[in-house]
Design a protein around this nucleic acid. Structure first.
Lengths: 226, 226
DNA sequence: ATCTAATGTCATAAAACTGTAACATAAGTG
DNA sequence: CACTTATGTTACAGTTTTATGACATTAGAT
């Protein structure tokens, strides 16, 4: 069964183009010319993924995002934010508001499709692999086990989830906000700095002395697997 | 240069036929009689595209696909799944597992070639828009990494942002004021000359001795990437 | 209920990054 | 060349950001 995607985009030349391309790629598309329409459409049907233009007359992408993250039925729907180049600096805002990814206009259809697929793949984890590997790290999602150089490592639930998330996109830097959203859940109130503590515990567990740190700190940005 | 294609197909009458046809069309072909062989071959060399039979003794096409999508080096290699008619219903499974296209047996060589070319064309032109390149400089926005001649360079947050801004408009000259606005933000009070210092630090980090200075000073105007 | 492991928060230490100012050079000018 | 102005360099103190360890609280297990 094909996945459905809701697009909210007020650029009337872009919207049909996007819709056309997504349809061509086997997706079912629901179109919304503005935020209002999008919210309305969401009451009808829950799509598998949302494509939101960040800059729209209110409610804009960010606002919609925040609203959705509040509600139980919608809080786990993957969201990709569409942002113009000039707004790029605000990408953090987009991710803080709970979006899963952002893409800068103008973008290629292929790129968009790739990201959509990646996100859909990730959110249907039940269907996915049971084993994730990176360098000499390995985790078994089904058995809930972690290995470093084939030696078992014990991790608490949070650390496990954190590591899993990092391993899903090795190399990519995640801000503390993103990690909180992904690991702790959206709309949960926990200090940002708590992430530091967990990263520290994780490092303590997975780092072998002598070998270089597997988790990289990127100052004023976040952490990533390295 | 001709593209290489790895075929994993356990039907021993089909495999050589496919290989023959692809070779005739100018592709370099690597053959694997089953999943194991395919994985082994992948350790040797990364092909430009994969043709996977979905029904094989384990690991089958889907499984291989999932495995490849986990790893960074292989996650962007286009994959076409070969499925028998009776398995057609499962085509969604194939695409969800990360395949880019599927084709139903029996298929015509012409069609297969067409799809292969289409995929190669797509994946060739489009890649990460999260990567900025200029001469032998490269920065990866998602990973917050900077390279000069493929060697990693460490930059502080401000330097990174500064470089990013310059790389977005290579050649263009920016005044100190413009740089302050773009990198530090509007309405911030910092000495104009502070830009000089950061430019200096940036130069120090990215310039290789011997090679010419990548940042040009334009007297009484500003700086630019050159 | 009792004990143990896991969590979230803080306070403090340690690093890394910034902005300035002072001085040195280089580039224009007449 | 002498003078003026712009830019390069360097050192350093002040800030910001992150690491670390301790502690109180909560959740889970026996």
């Amino acid at each position: 069964m094909s996945k459905s995607i809701l697009i909210a985009e007020d650029d009337t030349s872009l919207l049909p183009l996007l819709a056309y391309n997504l349809k061509n790629n086997g997706f079912k598309v629901i179109q919304a010319k503005n935020g209002e329409e999008a919210l309305l459409a969401l009451k009808e049907n829950l799509p598998d993924l949302l494509l939101l233009d960040w800059m729209m007359p209110s409610p804009n992408g960010i606002e919609i995002c925040k609203i959705l993250r509040q509600k139980k039925e919608t809080k786990n729907i993957p969201i990709i934010m569409l942002t113009a180049k000039s707004e790029e600096d605000n990408k953090i805002v987009g991710l803080e508001s709970g979006a899963d990814d952002y893409i800068i206009k103008p973008f290629s259809t292929t790129e968009l499709i790739a990201r959509i697929k990646a996100l859909l793949r990730r959110s249907y984890t039940t269907f996915d692999v049971d084993i994730l590997e990176y360098k000499n790290l390995k985790i078994n999602l089904k058995e809930y086990r972690t290995y470093r150089n084939d030696r078992t490592i014990h991790l608490g639930p949070k650390e496990f989830k954190l590591l899993k998330y990092l391993m899903e996109n090795p190399g990519r830097v995640f801000s503390r906000e993103q990690l909180l959203n992904a690991v702790w859940g959206h709309g949960i109130f926990v200090e940002l700095r708590t992430v530091d503590t967990h990263i520290r515990r994780l490092r303590k567990s997975i780092n072998l002395k002598g070998e270089h740190n597997l988790i990289r700190t990127v100052r004023s940005a976040g952490y990533s697997l390295d």
